[in-house]
């Protein structure tokens, strides 16, 4: 985590734009809607709090529900009440067995509903704290999300340049939709794919690109049985010319990518921007099981793309 003041990336917190070029696409509706998740609570003796904090540290590395926005300890009379982890992460038998191995005593293991995230305003934060469980207010949480983004704008431009060029090279029946999947650790392109729906209606560029990544992994595995395959597209970055349709957006959720950057919105068929299509924001939807970052290019370098009919599912 970088302190805001030390961050070298230029961040426009108000408009959610990085380096004057990348607009954050997110579900703007849900930040101030209260969502509750269930967490495990215990009561402890204050003297044991260092030990308990050690246990919490271990638990929170694997707990997919981040509880960092909550105060972990709350004093009630002689005792401290502590949040351990979410009930989604550990079932009762599992939390019991991890408590068994600890060298502190505790009472009253129970569940409690707590706010899933920090709201966007201080007033709401105070209200939820009173009604459910104390929230740590450090300003609008999206500011922290923006501040934590790791980004090299020149590398982004290189990848965008490449897909834009490929898009302009498409001919005939091929739609000018191009997608590349990049490993952010090496900045190497793992796969780059064109749209091919002329030969199969579902061969959109995103789908083909995901297929190409798994084909590559299978080949490597065939050559070397000891090869440790990469889990799906876990952590990869995706660059695509057009905002993807609902099929492709969900395919990217299934593939566990961490970031998508696109050049052009698909106002009728897109499934990411709240203003596009049905406003599904599939990458940032509380009911779906996973999420990824999405950025739309709004920079001054203009990537010209061939035209595409609005009704096309990109």
């Amino acid at each position: 985590m970088v302190k805001k003041i030390n961050n070298k990336i230029k961040i426009d917190y108000e408009n959610c734009i990085l380096e004057n070029s990348l607009l954050q696409i997110k579900n703007k509706k849900n930040v101030n809607n209260l969502e509750l998740i269930e967490a495990w609570l215990i009561d402890i003796n204050p003297i044991d709090s260092p030990k308990v904090l050690g246990l919490i540290k271990g638990l929170s590395t694997n707990d997919k529900r981040s509880l960092l926005h909550l105060k972990r300890l709350q004093r009630f009379g002689e005792q401290l009440t502590v949040i351990l982890c979410s009930t989604d992460y550990l079932e009762e038998s599992e939390i019991l067995s991890s408590l068994e191995t600890q060298s502190f005593t505790y009472n009253n293991l129970r569940t409690k509903k707590v706010p899933h995230h920090c709201p966007g305003t201080k007033e709401l934060s105070l209200k939820w704290s009173r009604e459910y469980w104390p929230i740590i207010w450090k300003g609008n949480p999206n500011d922290q999300i923006l501040n934590d983004v790791k980004l090299d704008i020149n590398i982004v431009k290189e990848h965008l340049n490449q897909i834009a060029e490929e898009s302009n090279r498409t001919t005939g029946e091929t739609l000018p939709i191009i997608t590349s999947i990049v490993d952010p650790n090496t900045n190497e392109i793992v796969a780059i794919s064109k749209d091919n729906r002329a030969s199969h209606p579902l061969h959109h560029s995103v789908m083909r690109c995901i297929d190409a990544v798994s084909e590559k992994e299978k080949e490597k595995k065939q050559k070397n049985q000891n090869y440790d395959t990469h889990y799906l597209c876990n952590g990869f970055h995706v660059y695509t010319t057009h905002e993807p349709c609902s099929m492709c957006s969900m395919a990217l959720i299934h593939s566990r990518i961490s970031r998508l950057i696109y050049l052009t919105a698909s106002p009728s068929t897109g499934a990411l921007d709240p203003e596009s299509g049905d406003g599904h924001t599939i990458h940032d939807h509380s009911l779906l099981n996973s999420s990824f970052e999405v950025w739309k290019w709004v920079g001054s370098d203009h990537y010209r793309l061939p035209s595409l009919k609005e009704e096309v599912n990109a």
Binding site: M247, M250, A251, N313
Partner: peptide
């Protein structure tokens, strides 16, 4: 799933 639901529609 959402992906297949969309594919079936398309």
């Amino acid at each position: 799933c959402v992906m297949c639901a969309s594919a079936l529609k398309q």
